[in-house]
Simulated scan of single mutants.
Amino acid sequence: MYLLDANRANDLVHFVQGAARWLAGWSYNLFTFDAEWLRTLLNYGLPALVYLVLGHALAARIRRIEH
């Protein structure tokens, strides 16, 4: 939402930010670059990528168990 310059007063934006902070809690402020857009991208992008890989691996494992 930050990179898209979303309206921060919107309830949906608050919900998404809260969920993102909770999901990225383990890596929040892991990167401390001067460029705010890069810091935001890495602090929230890294957990998103980790969850994507873990979700894909878990789905593949479940698919193997079912067959």
Rank of each mutant, 00 (worst) to 15 (best):
L12A: 05
L49F: 03
F31E: 00
N29A: 11
G18I: 08
G18L: 08
L58V: 06
S27K: 08
G18K: 07
G45Q: 13
D34F: 01
N43L: 03
L38D: 05
A60H: 13
A20Y: 08
L49K: 01
A60Y: 04
V13C: 11
M1T: 01
N29M: 13
G55N: 05
L52W: 05
N10E: 14
G25Q: 03
R63N: 14
D5T: 09
W37G: 06
N10P: 05
R39Q: 12
A48E: 07
A24T: 08
F33M: 10
V50M: 07
G25K: 06
V16G: 09
V13M: 10
G25T: 10
N7L: 12
T40Q: 13
L42Y: 02
P47W: 09
L52K: 09
L23P: 00
L4K: 13
L4V: 06
L52F: 10
F33R: 09
R39K: 15
L52M: 11
E66Y: 06
V53I: 15
A60W: 10
N7I: 08
W22F: 12
R21F: 00
L3Y: 11
L30K: 10
R63A: 15
A35V: 14
W37E: 14
G55D: 05
V13P: 04
L49S: 05
F15L: 14
D11M: 05
Y28T: 07
L30Q: 10
L30A: 07
Y2Q: 06
L52H: 04
V50D: 00
A20F: 11
L46R: 04
V16C: 12
D5I: 03
M1K: 01
N43H: 02
A24H: 08
I65H: 07
L23T: 00
S27R: 11
R63C: 10
A48W: 12
A57N: 00
W22R: 14
D5L: 02
R39L: 14
W37T: 13
A24Y: 03
L38F: 02
L52P: 02
W22C: 08
A48S: 15
Y2S: 03
L3Q: 08
L30W: 07
I65W: 05
A57W: 06
R8H: 08
N29F: 09
F31L: 00
H56A: 15
D5G: 04
A24Q: 06
R61K: 14
Y44I: 03
V50G: 00
D34W: 10
L58A: 03
V16Y: 09
V13E: 11
A24C: 12
R8D: 15
L58N: 01
D34H: 06
V13T: 10
A35K: 15
W37P: 03
D34N: 13
R63Y: 09
L4R: 10
V50Y: 01
G18C: 12
E66D: 12
V53K: 06
T32I: 01
L38K: 13
T32F: 07
L3G: 12
